[in-house]
């Protein structure tokens, strides 16, 4: 599938699988898994530099910024103020204006606080950020995020790290039909078929972290996810057959004895 780029806010992305960089054993494993996934977008969090132990390596020493688009996130922020602070710090750290915006509403489910999310998105868009919001599978909220200027929307498939797969394909489908900007299914996939399913529904990309990093063999799973996303995208573009209750023979009756 050559020449099938994903375009968001005028930027071209070659991979439709985006990956997080958390929860790996070490940076070497992170790097290998990302390479195996074929992803060109990697998400990172913003945290305090360890000033007591300067021998610690930095993740970005392992990820060539020429090869990967670094997408900072506001992971761990539970209110608008914190999310704005982290987004501004991420930009000050000098990667780009891209931000994966998370405003979480609850620690147990990590579901987004969608009211706070819309508010934070509105402010950051005005400040010139390219805001990619992590949101619920709610079409109305998705539309509001587009209305405040988000050039893509990232609805969840299931709670972050749950591996439950696509819990509400119908809502996601409605989002994909209603919303005119790219849709990136973010969070909740467990295995390659989940990623394929998201793409078959019409998602423009899938973002995941735990499903790869938490697998027994993260590097093999990263590769599986690459093919899952690829197969799902191809199937979506090919157009599946309608579901029917009864059989339709594949072989002709003519010529039978």
């Amino acid at each position: 599938m050559q020449n099938d780029p994903l375009i968001i806010a005028g930027r071209e992305f070659t991979s439709r699988l985006w990956v997080g960089t958390g929860k790996y054993k070490d940076f070497a494993e992170t790097k290998k898994a990302i390479e195996a996934s074929g992803a060109d977008v990697v998400t990172v969090a913003v945290r305090r530099v360890n000033i007591t132990d300067r021998s610690k390596e930095n993740l970005l020493d392992y990820l060539d910024p020429k090869k990967y688009i670094i997408l900072p996130n506001t992971a761990g922020c539970y209110n608008v103020e914190d999310a704005l602070r982290y987004a501004r710090l991420a930009r000050a750290a000098g990667v780009s204006d891209l931000i994966k915006l998370e405003v979480l509403g609850d620690e147990r489910t990590l579901f987004p606080d969608t009211a706070g999310l819309i508010e934070a998105a509105r402010i950051l868009v005005k400040e010139g950020f390219i805001v990619l919001p992590y949101t619920n599978d709610d079409p109305i909220v998705a539309q509001k995020l587009v209305d405040v200027g988000c050039p893509a929307v990232m609805p969840l498939a299931a709670p972050i790290g749950s591996g439950l797969g696509i819990r509400n394909p119908y809502n996601l489908k409605i989002i994909m039909e209603m919303i005119k900007v790219p849709i990136i299914v973010d969070a909740g996939v467990g295995t390659a078929s989940d990623a394929a399913f998201a793409m078959e529904l019409g998602a423009d990309a899938v973002l995941m972290n735990t499903a790869i990093a938490g697998a027994k063999d993260p590097i093999a799973m990263a590769e599986a996810m690459k093919y899952g996303v690829y197969a799902g995208r191809l199937a979506y573009k090919a157009g599946r057959i309608p579901r029917k209750l009864y059989a339709t023979a594949s072989s002709p009756i003519e010529g039978m004895l």
Binding site: G22, V44, R47, V49, G76, L104, L110, L207
Partner: peptide, 22 residues
Amino acid sequence: EILSFIGGGAPMGSHVRERGFV
């Protein structure tokens, strides 16, 4: 406050919140 990027794509639950500088 001096900050940089670390591995992360999804928050890892409440302990991240405790670690967060805010």
